[in-house]
Write a protein that binds this DNA or RNA. Sequence first.
DNA 1: TGTCCATGATCAA
DNA 2: TGATCCTGGACAT
Length: 270
Amino acid sequence: MPEGHVIHRLARVYADAFGGLPSRSTSPQGRFADGAAEIDGRVLTLAEAVGKHLLLEFEGRCVHVHLGMAGRSTFYAGPPDDRPLTGVIRWRLENDREWADLRGPAACELLAPQARERLLHRLGPDPLREDSDPEIAWTRVRASRRSVAELLMDQRMFAGVGNIFRAEVLFRLGVDPRLPGRDVPRETFEEIWSDLEELMARACAVGRIDTVRAEHLPEAMGRPPRVDRHGGEVYVYRREGQPCHVCGTAIEARVVAARNLFWCPGCQAP
DNA sequence: TGTCCATGATCAA
DNA sequence: TGATCCTGGACAT
């Protein structure tokens, strides 16, 4: 269940594990049989992430992976052994040092150069990529009457941003989630973008999403640390009904852009 | 054992 | 907007 920072980490892990050596490539489940066979015996030459999309280049062949909500890659040391495996393995990549199993992705396919271009074309700038141009996002945001909470989930505007980052960045900047894109001040957009850059880079480095500023951390506030499956310290994400760490107002939740949006009505008033 | 839900996204209507 | 796909974990029964 990944946002962009997970995919950027994944690109590094694939590069470290498989870069420079020929890989064996199979599809135990069979749904990626042809593609896996095409890759078999080739060398991973480039691994990169664009938003939530993972692109793995094998000597000119491009494998496109999108984990969706359920997909995950698991890495194991050593060549594949006889340990019992659970679940359905869409794609297995292996060499003599380690192997990686991909399960449940929304997409795992070979991408022709044209299709790759089309994919990149429909993605907006990614706060985690140095070659991203936030002006593209700004142009689209200021032209939209949709709410800023919807726009943050739109991969044509903010590639790689997902439900946690959108809720947390809006909270951190005190932005009303209902504010229409066309009414977002330029300055606010710049704050959103730079906060996304900072939060996502940190999440990518650490491997979990922490958004709480030092003065609001549990130790500083005399409250118990957050215990949640996703693991990070956050202000509002999945805290519906609990008191805001800053003002004490009960956190609210409502479905926006098909996902639960969490926000503090006190800190994020119009 | 079954149901619901999730850091996602597409497609039809 | 709703149905659907994908998998696993939490929780109810």
